[in-house]
Nucleic acid binder design. Structure first.
Lengths: 339, 339
DNA sequence: TTGTAGGCGTTATCAT
DNA sequence: ATGATAACGCCTACAA
């Protein structure tokens, strides 16, 4: 088999010039209906597929988007990716999937790749703690539309989709407090570069503070957000001999691990320990007990990212915008009221 | 800010021809070290990113892969996608994420897009039942390397990574039988185009047959593989008044739903009903009880796909190969021996 | 309504 | 070791 068919082959077959073929493909300009018909027939017969690479070079637009997440096998990012792909497909864009593994270096490498690939836009879900500033700098220097999602660093001056993490954390804190809990622990997010507490941790601690409770560092453990990290963190807390009637966990995936570990050690959830998660991934309903959690509008995050991106592609000079999405407490079975 | 820097800008700045710049970028051919240094400096200073679109046009290779799955938010596909991305990145390829939603039409559309984008290869995980033959035809006519994974249609004449589904199903059947179960049900995979039973269902039924048990159609319910489908299917079975001490479920995601639904109706797992899943996704360990399941080597599927693909890209004329991956029973807590 | 031709940014061939 | 220059396949003025 020979190389792929080109616009020239189609033109020859239809007995017209390549310009005409191009015009019917992109149906721009009026074309003689009969000519158009011949061209379409030729396209059909030759199974012609216009070369988007050439088109991209000429049009200076690839109709592709880059999506950078830490790990698409994490259900949270998986759902976001799904939404991004959906919205992209709808608008005629393809999405290039990039996993950063929480590594700044890999993030930078991927950004260089996306720049070289001349994607029309980038959705960046940087891990808390990584040096977003530098990444943003790199991207905007290449003049590529960018949307940042779920970021914790303020004042980036670019389009962002934010979630009310602080409020979400606060809600979780108040909820536990209202249930009568006073002996509380926290399992947070850790990565090499993280400095200080995440917004949701801060919100949580503010709620406790208001009730006169300060979270001793001995009552805090960390993980990188995955199921096994949750198990390990719970084990660590227990190993330290920490007494607790309730624990707030950075995300549902770790919360699942926490519940598992607690149960494995003969503790009852919520009988002995109440657990609150964050995210509301699908599987937070699947555990026993089902997890009470602070929900993010996951799919919407992805959709909003793409919407913002497409609008910026359309209007590059627009002022940067921020979309703030709410959280919502979803009560299930993993918490109980203390008597 | 102006358009992106090109090789010409670099050449001018370094006082050399574009040919020389190209040569140092791709470091092919000996170059005067001092010249090379000047070029590299210019690249640095201008923050030059070679245009992969132009390069792709010229080289007739985009160093990109298309990955078609039904839904990347399904943990099984999410893990496969992760592995594909990993292996691709390692080899310098980007991956374009495509969700087919089990729709033949969307699959075809995406294939056309991937052809037009001139990807160097395609990994196709078609849903059981869709018309793979036609899709394969379409792709090979465009002369694009293709690997099919987890397919049920035999004799495609292309590279494939297969999993021993039939044996896996058989194993599940034998396991339940050996535990003393005789009153058994099955929750299978359904899609519009599916005809007949999936291989794992056939394997399962063969085991039952050998024990003299034929699965009445009233003891079978179907779902599309997601968590909620599992709940619904279990509800359906129960609604029909089916008596059972054990049920085999097409995948872990549905098995999670089945367990939830059973428990919601006051049934104990495995006390009243034993449940066997398939896949061994991470979360099959997270439920209570943890799910006993027939494991697929999920990440390995992705890696093998990419390996096969890259080798074919290298040697287009090679004979088509099949890689057959084994399944393995993972015993956890969702089954019990009948006394 | 249709055709001609230049250029998008590279790589690779052929000189020098 | 380096420099011109012709493609790669498409779109789009500009002409006709």
């Amino acid at each position: 088999m020979w190389a792929l068919t080109t616009i020239h082959d189609v033109a020859r077959r239809a007995g017209v010039s390549i310009a005409t073929v191009s015009r019917v493909i992109n149906n721009v300009q009026p074309i003689d209906p009969e000519t158009a018909q011949r061209v379409r027939a030729a396209i059909e017969e030759l199974d012609y597929h216009p070369n988007y690479v050439a088109r991209g070079l000429r049009r200076r637009s690839t109709r592709s988007l880059g999506l950078i997440v830490s790990d698409n096998s994490n259900p949270f990012f998986a759902e976001v990716a799904r939404a991004v792909e959906d919205a992209g497909y709808e608008a005629g864009y393809s999405v290039i999937l990039c996993n950063s593994d929480l590594s700044t270096e890999k993030q930078e490498r991927y950004i260089d790749v996306l720049i070289s690939r001349r994607v029309d836009g980038i959705v960046l879900m940087s891990a808390p703690g990584s040096d977003v500033k530098a990444l943003v700098e790199r991207i905007s220097h290449a003049d590529i539309p960018l949307v940042i999602a779920n970021n914790e660093v303020p004042d980036l001056g670019v389009d962002e989709v934010q979630v009310a993490f602080h409020e979400g954390g606060y809600t979780a804190g108040r909820y536990l407090l209202d249930l009568g809990h006073r002996s509380i622990a926290y399992i947070g997010f850790f990565s090499e570069q993280v400095r200080g507490h995440t917004a949701r941790a801060q919100g949580f601690m503010r709620a406790l503070s208001e009730a006169g409770i300060e979270l001793a560092s001995s009552r805090i453990a960390y993980g990188r957000g995955r199921y096994q990290d949750g198990r390990a963190a719970a084990a660590e807390l227990l190993g330290r001999g920490v007494q607790m009637t309730a624990v707030f966990v950075f995300d549902d995936l770790m919360a699942m691990g926490v519940i598992k570990e607690l149960q494995a050690r003969g503790l009852s959830v919520p009988g002995d320990v109440s657990v609150v998660g964050f995210d509301n991934i699908v599987y937070s309903e699947a555990t026993t007990p089902a997890i009470t959690t602070v929900a993010q509008p996951i799919a919407r995050i992805g959709h909003e990212c793409v919407r913002l991106l497409l609008e910026r592609i359309e209007h590059p000079e627009m002022e940067p915008r921020q979309v703030l999405l709410p959280t919502e407490l979803v009560e299930r079975e993993s918490c109980r009221r203390l008597d």
